[in-house]
Design a binder for these strands. Structure first.
Length: 580
RNA sequence: GCCCGUGUAGCUUAGCUGGAUAGAGCAGCGCACUUCUAAUGCGCAGGUCACAGGUUCGAAUCCUGUCACGGGUACCA
């Protein structure tokens, strides 16, 4: 069965072609949800634009389309409004049929992409030998939500964790570790690694002798000195252990198999520069090897170069990013590469993607998407830091989220058994943290605020999770197995039922649109609106107290709402709970 | 200087790519509970969509300029 909106579009297109000729058969009917429920369920906004094109009054155009419109078996009412809005009211029976079909659909009404693609998503990207911090939160959470959404519409997603696992800082790190008598076999905690990193940095800045040895160590590392590499490998392995525990706690779908760190491209960098040279794109400027992507200027208005090889022969992140893009397009054969990286790196992305196009390494058929996001701010609207001005560790945020959620649950529902309360606190805490990050337009900064993200009202995870739990509660109360309830017929009579069903039926289109726009906050808004409509339904339409077919119908709507909340939240990486 | 982004109610924000009266939540005021966990729902009040022009049937949305804040602007990532 086709998506309801698609059916409406087809009818309007057919009517438009009948009224004004076949050249309009492909017109976009601009079907939207009705701006006001009094106008109907949907509105078609094409008449105004078409009127202008045809030189006819839009109202006349709309009338002609309506006259030609086939309403049979779909529409219960059609009317005109304003300058030429076509208001559409769907037959209740059609809404009911679609709801039944959606309930029976394993995919939850999410259509599979017509042409599944291989999509690379580059996200999270923490640094080896350092703890993850608040700066990694958004990339990790947003990237994970996008991965899940793209998979849901049928794409093959290849996750890429572009670890910071190479570079000059490893010279001082390794040198310091060797001084400290570090045993690569023994291991160390993430906290210890961070302390060692800080100590190394301090010595590097303060101690001239150490500085010299650290530089020499970098050379050894790059030359493949086995003793040096052994320490480096141990560091990477320890960090991966740690990253996996953090991702596991967060429920993020990243493992060490997804790691393609900077070191992975190490042996491909010279070739990248060589290829640039062969293609005639490489220039020499002030001793460095550079390319000039078109359209970028420096302070003086001169063409801004992207340096791919320093005057001392070293490579930079631009080189690595070019190599990574080539790998993703040529080896992984990605049709789309998505970079989930903070806004400060936007220009860098634009420079290397321009270079990739300019060199012809990535043709127009391959899509390169930059998913930028704003900063996490503290209450003072500056970068989020601890009271003492330190970077906030990611695990501290996870701990705090669970702790605060546990306190809220203990207060609101003291009857929950301890073990379940702990599991619920984990889900609510993690969900709240993620949802707060996902629910606003990602390009905007947001102020980190525990009270708001854990609030029980408004567009928050607890509100949505509670809505789900309340539905499950109805099934428990009625002694009806949730999973086993298949649902039979659905009737859509009350306005609250109609409002709920219309929202439910928009789920698939919403997921599709997020897979395109890469804006998870739209899905958040959708789910919030769904929960709101459910609560209105819940207030107006008794479920267990109604009888017979009506009861079954309402149970079916409850179940479909619960499944849709669960699926939608699942796409955001958020787990539901049956009680809270 | 130049480039990019942001600016919507006291606060936090949405606005489906130009459509009908700019929607929510919090905070404030007023209703509705022998409940399907009220962790809710309904109502009232609250807007110069930063500012000024422009485009057109129609602008928070598009174009120009201004202001404020943030970011970027060659050998860090």
């Amino acid at each position: 069965m086709h998506d309801l909106q698609t059916l409406l579009e087809q009818r309007i297109r057919t009517a438009t072609a009948a009224a004004f000729g076949d050249e309009h058969a492909a017109i976009d009917p601009l079907i939207r949800s009705a701006s006001n429920p009094q106008h109907g369920d949907f509105q078609a906004n094409l008449a105004m634009a078409l009127g202008k094109k045809l030189g006819q009054p839009p109202r006349k155009v709309a009338e002609a389309i309506v006259d030609a419109l086939d309403t049979q078996g779909l529409l219960a009412g059609v009317s005109l409004g304003g300058p030429g809005f076509i208001n559409l009211t769907v037959e209740p029976g059609v809404l009911a049929e679609h709801a039944v079909a959606m309930l029976a659909d394993d995919g939850g009404g999410v259509p599979r992409a017509g042409t599944p693609q291989t999509v690379v998503v580059d996200y999270s990207s923490p640094n080896v030998a350092k703890e993850m911090h608040v700066g990694h939160l958004r990339s990790t959470v947003i990237g994970d939500a996008l991965v899940r959404t793209l998979e849901a519409v049928g794409h093959t997603v290849v996750r890429q964790n572009h670890l910071g696992d190479w570079g000059t800082q490893f010279g001082m790190l390794i040198e310091n570790l060797k001084d400290a008598g570090f045993d690569p076999q023994a291991g160390a905690s993430a906290g210890e690694l961070t302390a060692l990193y800080k100590a190394a940095k301090k010595r590097f800045d303060d101690d001239a002798d150490f500085n010299t040895r650290a530089r020499a160590r970098v050379v050894k590392l790059q030359a493949g000195d086995e003793e040096t590499l052994a320490v480096w490998r141990a560091l990477v392995a320890l960090s991966n252990d740690y990253f996996e525990t953090v991702y596991g706690r967060m429920g993020v779908k990243l493992t060490r198999d997804d790691v393609r760190g900077e070191s992975f491209y190490n042996d491909k960098l010279a070739a990248v520069v060589g290829r640039l040279d062969e293609g005639g794109h490489l220039k020499e400027s002030q001793g460095a090897k550079v390319v000039f992507p078109e359209g970028f200027a420096d302070r003086e208005g001169e063409p801004l170069p992207m340096i791919v090889q320093k005057s001392d022969g070293g490579y930079l992140y631009a080189t690595t990013d070019l190599a990574a893009a080539v790998y993703r397009v040529e080896e992984i054969k990605a049709a789309r590469v998505i970079y989930v990286i903070g806004l400060p790196q936007r220009q860098h992305f634009q420079m290397f993607s321009t270079t990739l196009r300019q060199c012809g390494w990535v043709d127009d058929a391959v899509r390169l998407d930059y998913v930028g996001f704003g900063s996490v701010l503290g209450a003072d609207k500056k970068m989020f830091k601890t009271r003492s001005g330190e970077t906030v560790r990611l695990v501290d945020l996870l701990d705090e989220a669970e702790k605060r959620a546990a306190a809220a649950i203990a207060e609101k529902n003291p009857d929950l058994p301890g073990s379940e309360a702990a599991a619920v606190a984990k889900a609510v805490g993690m969900g709240s943290l993620k949802y707060a990050d996902l629910s606003g337009d990602r390009v905007k900064d947001y102020v980190f605020d525990w009270d708001r993200m854990l609030a029980l009202d408004g567009n928050t995870a607890p509100y949505l999770l509670y809505s789900y739990a309340r539905i499950r509660s109805i099934f428990r109360k009625g002694d009806i197995a949730f999973d086993g309830f298949a649902g039979g017929q659905v009737s859509v009579a009350a306005s609250a039922e109609r409002g709920l069903v219309l929202q439910l039926l928009g789920f698939g289109a919403m997921v599709e649109s997020v897979a395109q726009s890469l804006e998870p906050h739209r899905l958040c808004n959708y789910l919030y609106e769904l929960a709101t409509r459910y609560h209105r339904f819940f207030e107006a339409c008794p479920v267990l107290k109604s009888e017979g077919e009506l009861r079954d119908s309402r149970l079916a709507l409850c179940k479909l709402t619960a499944l849709t909340l669960e699926r939608g939240l699942g796409l955001l990486g958020i787990e539901v709970v049956e009680r809270m």
